[in-house]
Design a protein around this nucleic acid. Sequence first.
RNA 1: GGGGUCGUAGUUAAGCCUGGUUAUAACGCCGGCCUGUCACGCCGGAGGCCGCGAGUUCAAUUCUCGUCGACCCCGCCA
Length: 584
Amino acid sequence: MRDKQCGAVSRDDIGNTLTLSGWVFRRRDHGGLIFIDLRDVTGIVQVVFSPEISPDAHERAGDIKQEFVISITGKVRKRPEGTENPNVPTGEVEVYADTFQVLNTCKALPFQLDEEEPSEALRLKYRYLDMRRLEIQKVFVERSKAYKVIRDYLTSCGFLEFETPFLTKSTPEGARDFIVPSRLNAGNFYALPQSPQLFKQILMIGGFDKYFQIVRCFRDEDLRADRQPEFTQVDIEMSFVDVDDVLSVCEGLVSALYLELKGEPLATPIPRMPFSEAMELYGNDKPDLRFDLPMIEITDIFKDTEFGVFKKTIEDGGAIKCLVLKGKTLARKDLDTSVEITKEMGAGGLIWIRKESGNLKSPVVKYLKDNEISLMDERLHLSDGDVVFIMADGRNKVNDVMGRFRLYLGDKYDLIRKDQFKFLWIVDFPLFEYSEEEKRYVARHHPFTSPQGSIKDFSGDYGAFKARAYDLVLNGVEIGGGSIRIHRKDDQMEMFKLLGHKVEDAEEKFGFLLEALDMGAPPHGGLAFGFDRILMMLLGLESIRDVIPFPKTQKGTCLLSGAPSKIPQRQLNELRIRVTGEQQ
RNA sequence: GGGGUCGUAGUUAAGCCUGGUUAUAACGCCGGCCUGUCACGCCGGAGGCCGCGAGUUCAAUUCUCGUCGACCCCGCCA
């Protein structure tokens, strides 16, 4: 049906007769002469229909419309002097059609493939048309390359690729599960995996030593620009390792991916930052280091202050922190907007101070002592025009709000160097975090995470106990995370106990893991990368939907297939399911 | 569950704030012309429940409320 792909036609083919197939991209009908850009995934090539070459083909070519699928046969020729097109790789040559065949027609398109992007909803409904666009094809060519790099790298390191069940068991903690009813066991349900966590641990206990899988995971939570209900993880697990071993393998993998997709080596090692430092400097556990602007603590400067707000904060054990915006010109309106923005973010208030002609100016300066002002000026190295934003409140509140305000400032004042890729390991996570909803401490990572040191040394201070867990962050987005696991049953039981699980419950939910841990489980640990997110970031795209062939909308629907949908009563009966409280 | 943005020919947008004669443009589509174009060009034409439903008004694409859908954010996402 074809001798080669459209983009592969070159000057080496001049003089040869080729058969080429593809889609009619653009047509330029000059009456006497018709040009068609024939397109496939490799590129486009110009086909000429001339009455002097084939009157029949020229006559019939008048009826060809865009996106017809055609096959043409003709001689490749060098283009006449002055008509070459340097913008196209095949622009030196063209194919003079002797004969052609219409393999399929195409009705009028719902949107044009070579113009402004139609709405995303329309693109998703007609995803097969959207995909024909060059820029979309590029993404999935890159995605395919990424799969290969990952498989090549990990297998070369001795990792074995596995598949684990999709029809599996619901696990407590973590995200909401997607549920699949069991026909053979009416009234019982499978859960789709949030990750293959337990199975990969079992594979380690099974002695396979190094496991990986490029695997779909499912989480029934609300969607975001970087979150889909089904997404792909690069899942990795290794035996006889500690944190450094895992991070080192992962850095190798990320470097290989980066080299493939960005065409340049990645500077390694990737820097590491303790969780607590990330929280204190950037207010979250995934700082965007493409711009600096850390929070600076100035609580100590005001230890004897007369200024009510600060005094009260310090008495209540809170913190006073600031962000210093340098080299930007802010109008009074910008400052007022900043106050509004932080209030919307949950701040009690925001104080700004601006340095003008060597003096600090602000509505609150009159409440501050001279030495407080000069200490601030000195510590913050202020120059004329600099603005200091100060917040005083509980430490967690300050970190949270200032962290988000920092991102706002970074965006608003173009501080972010958009061409940079700042990878960062966050390490030394707390093992536990308090859940307001459940009124108890839960595992911050998951309940199989090993603490630093022995779990038997737990002092009772949940907040201070650290985990052997780590996250990989790229430009303010979490792209991977993992931990060293608990590999002994007694430790795991202790962990469940600390989390407030009853022994019977733990046995019921994880009996198979607990029993396996009791039969020679090796020390092991691993990590999972969010494959879609990494692609999104490295390809410079705004949404995870852009790197998924058939993504779902924010309400979890597939505009192409119409899922989810009702099912016939017969199927419900088979499953012994009755639908109640249905919304029409 | 909550906050916000958007919805106008097939498509992308303008008009809406400040209600009033025939809702504008580009691309696409249909017809005609054109032998060197490559976003071909030129001439002509068709194409609209202004998302849907209420309300205000003499009059609503325009103002208000509701609703549906897409998107962004908070909660949620070990």
